[in-house]
Each structure stands twice: as C-alpha cells, then as structure tokens.
C-alpha cells in the first residue's frame, strides 16, 4: 500500500498508510475500535476503494483479479440462516472456483477437524455463534488461498475455540501462506504474530517485527514486592538508580532513571530492602500503544483505550466507517 487514504464524508478513516506485507508473513493489525483496521482490510480486498494512493495484492492491481487466491473472513460476517452447513461450504467453495466431487469431501474433512463433523446437515441457524464462526473460517481457507485475511477472527469465541483457531491460523502460516489478521485485543496479537502493524486514528504508528518492538521498547520498569508485605516503596524511591515509584493495578513499579542498567538497579533494590519479588517488567503491546498515543490523549482517554484493548468482547456495531 502506498499513501492510501480513505474518507467517509468528512471523517478520515485511513490517512496515508504505507504498508508492505512480505509473502509468508503472519502479520497482526492492531489498534482500538474505529482505528481504521477494517477499512484498511476492505481496501486490500477491493471491497472499498481508496480515495487516493495505490495498492497491489499478490502482484495484481487489485484483489478483484485474484479473489480466488485470497481467503477473507470479514468482521461483519454471517451465514445463510436456512442453508445447510455442508451446502453453504460447498457454495463458498464453488464461488472460489473449486468444483467437482472433491469439494464436498474437503468440506467434510474440515468440519471434522474443527469438531463440527455432525452439523453438516443442520441448518446454519441451528448453530451457535461460535460454531458459525468456525464454519466461516472453513469457508475462508477451504480453497487453500495464498493470502488469508481475518478481520477480528477471535471475537465471540470461547477460550477453547480461541486456542483451536489460533492453532489453525498458525498451521496455515506454517504451510507457507501469508496471514493478515486484525484484532483490538493486543494480547492475541502478541501470542501469534511475527510482525505487528499498529493503527491509530487512521495512521500507522508501528510497523515492525515483534522482536524489534520488544528490543526498542526495552524494559524500564521493575515491579517489586517487599518481603512479608513490608512497604518498600519509600526505600526504593530513595535509590539513585530509580527515577520514581508508582503503582499500577496494585503493583508497585520502580521506573529506572535515564541511562541506568536494569541489572544494576535490581541489585541496588535488593540490597536496599529485603524483597519477596523483584521482576523486570517487559512492556506489553498494550503498554507500548498507550505510551505511543500518550502525547495526544489525556488521562481519561488513556484509561478508555486501555480498557478497550484488553476487553475481549464483541466488536461494537461497526458501520462502513469502522
């Protein structure tokens, strides 16, 4: 994608995004609700068209020419209520250019794999939302696409199915396919991706391999707990290596002073106070994200974002401008 921009009326949904996704990568699009993830994905899929900028998909000018090589699970997804599950999958396969007697067999095998072997002849409306989602995922990978795009694939799944889906995504990745998925829950991206693209207010704020992000945002916080519950904050705060002490979620956190090596600080802390626990805290994507938008957001805004990035609930009613 090159300088891709998309507006809906006066609202700018995506503002000049440049993005390259190399073949075979597993990339996570993260960002809060309404950041522009779905709009970006819809433009990649040529369901929406950018106002300006260029993009190419699988070497073609637009995804329209290579739809059969792409598997797409939209955020706004559904099934034909009255259609039987097997028929629905066969229809999706046929639309993707599959055909012949092998199609039904492949669909059945997939249903077995996601523990839905017995629903083939049920109507889609008889399935739970999570089951429907698994059926949709099958519809998305049935034709063995080269590129798989999943928009919020985990929303609405229980932990067991979330793990199942994670394994299936990893398996597709291991088979050499390119996978792009979006989520507003940062933890999911951390668990799965090689590469993270973070979008905020329609702009790309991070585009790096996860290792690089980790090393760039080197840990500068030490979490600690005094032995026998003693309050060690005052003693720690007095050390030269520590800039200040704060508390997040009931955890005491020592923020390292500039240029101080974490190892030296931990040694100084344990020397100063008997500790039950001292731990170098690796920043999560969530922390990094909150940190990144800190300049623009006030405190309430930060808390709201944090809550949103953790929440694993269903996405809000997203309009065309999500």
């Amino acid at each position: 994608m090159r300088s891709v921009r998309k507006t809906f009326g006066k609202k700018v949904a995506v503002e000049g995004i440049d993005l390259d996704v190399p073949a075979g990568e597993l990339v996570g699009f993260i960002g809060p609700n309404g950041a522009g993830k779905s709009t970006t994905i819809r433009m990649i899929m040529s369901i929406l068209f950018p106002d300006s900028g260029e993009l190419s998909v699988l070497g073609k000018k637009s995804a329209v020419e290579s739809k059969d090589r792409i598997g797409y699970l939209p955020e706004e997804r559904g099934v034909y209520k009255k259609m039987k599950v097997g028929a629905f999958l066969r229809y999706m396969g046929a639309l993707k250019g599959l055909g012949g007697p092998g199609l039904g067999k492949t669909a059945d095998e997939w249903l077995e794999r996601v523990a839905l072997g017995d629903v083939k002849n049920k109507r889609c409306e008889e399935l739970s939302k999570g089951m429907q989602q698994k059926v949709q995922f099958i519809g998305c990978v049935l034709h063995e696409p080269d590129l798989i795009i999943l928009d919020e694939p985990f929303s609405g799944l229980d932990p067991v199915n979330m793990r199942l889906l994670r394994d299936l995504i990893r398996e597709q990745h291991d088979a050499g396919r390119t996978v792009i998925f979006s989520t507003h829950v940062m933890v999911q991206a951390e668990q799965l991706c090689d590469h993270i693209v973070m979008i905020h207010n329609g702009q790309k704020v991070i585009d790096d391999p996860i290792g690089a992000i980790r090393s760039r945002y080197a840990p500068r916080i030490v979490r600690f707990e005094g032995l026998n519950g003693a309050d060690a904050s005052a003693a720690v705060g007095g050390l030269a290596e520590i800039a200040h002490v704060s508390a997040t979620d009931g955890q005491a956190e020592a923020h390292l002073a500039d240029g101080v090596d974490p190892g030296r600080a931990i040694a100084a802390m344990t020397a100063a106070v008997p500790m039950a626990r001292v731990e170098l805290h690796r920043p999560s994507l969530e922390d990094i994200f909150i940190d990144m938008v800190q300049d623009t957001a006030d405190k309430d805004e930060r808390e709201r974002l944090r809550a949103q990035l953790r929440q694993d609930g269903t996405p809000t009613e997203a309009g065309g401008a999500s």
């Binding site: 899929m45 040529s46 369901i47 329209v64 739809k67 059969d68 792409i70 598997g71 797409y72 699970l73 939209p74 955020e75 706004e76 997804r77 559904g78 099934v79 034909y80 209520k81 999706m92 639309l95 993707k96 949709q136 519809g139 998305c140």
Partner: peptide
C-alpha cells in the same frame, strides 16, 4: 435484505464482485 441483515454479504464479496 436477508443477505444484508444476516451479514453474509461481505463474506460473499470476498469471493465475488
């Protein structure tokens, strides 16, 4: 209307224009 209200439409659009 059924395809729209059941949100199957975008799934279809992933396969057809």
């Amino acid at each position: 209307v059924e395809e729209k209200s059941s949100r199957v439409v975008e799934v279809l659009l992933s396969a057809v224009s």
